[in-house]
Amino acid sequence: MKRLITLGMIAALGLGAGIANARDLGPDEAVKLRDAGTIKDFQLLNDSALKLHPNGRISETELEHEYGKYLYQLEIKDKDGIKWDVELDATTGNVLKNQQDD
């Protein structure tokens, strides 16, 4: 029984650590990172995401620092009204995720 409780506590701590590892960045911090060259220019990141969905419109953006990486997340509504979740590595511009929103 003690072993089961210990395993449960370890799992809960691991889950909590994962949650604590992601942090949303505010506009001021994002601009500083861009100006320092740490992340790509936001217009370049937006253009990369929109190439995946031509004639789409960006409805939301968010910059996060997670597990040592800067992630730029966008919600795009394509020309047919379908919503897409797109995630880019903000440092390289590489597409990490491009999936239809549920």
Results as ranks from 00 to 15, higher is better:
Gly18Ile: 04
Met9Ala: 14
Lys40Gly: 05
Gln73Ala: 12
Gly8Pro: 02
Lys51Thr: 11
Pro54Ile: 11
Lys83Ser: 15
Thr91Val: 11
Lys2Leu: 14
Asp80Cys: 01
Glu62Asn: 13
Pro54Glu: 15
Leu4Gln: 09
Lys97Met: 03
Tyr72Trp: 13
Asp35Glu: 15
Gly16Phe: 05
Lys40Pro: 00
Glu66Cys: 13
Leu63Asp: 09
Gly37Met: 04
Asp24Arg: 13
Gly16Thr: 07
Asp102Val: 04
Lys79Leu: 10
Val95Asn: 04
Ser48Cys: 03
Gly81Cys: 04
Glu60Gln: 14
His53Val: 09
Gly8Met: 09
Glu75Ala: 07
Val31Tyr: 15
Asp89Asn: 11
Lys79Phe: 07
Ile76Thr: 05
Leu44Ser: 08
Gln43Trp: 11
Ile39Gln: 00
Thr6Ile: 11
Ile5Glu: 05
Ile10Gly: 02
Arg57Pro: 01
Ile5Thr: 15
Val31Trp: 05
Glu29Asp: 14
Pro27Thr: 05
Thr92Lys: 04
Gly37Tyr: 05
Asp78Cys: 09
Glu62Pro: 00
Asn21Ile: 14
Met1Phe: 03
Ala17Glu: 07
Ile19Val: 12
Lys40Gln: 15
Gly14Asp: 02
Asn55Ile: 00
Leu15Glu: 01
Thr92Pro: 03
Gln99Ile: 12
Asp80Gly: 08
Leu15Gly: 13
Ala90Leu: 09
Met1Tyr: 10
Leu7Val: 06
Tyr70Gly: 01
Asp78Glu: 12
Arg34Cys: 13
Gly26Thr: 09
Leu50Gly: 06
Ala20Gln: 07
Leu7Cys: 10
Ala49Asp: 10
Glu29Phe: 03
Ser48Val: 05
Asp41Thr: 08
Lys32Arg: 07
Gly81Val: 01
Gly81Leu: 03
Asn46Ala: 10
Thr38Val: 13
Gly68Ser: 14
Asn94Ser: 11
Asn98Ala: 06
Gly8Lys: 10
Lys40Phe: 02
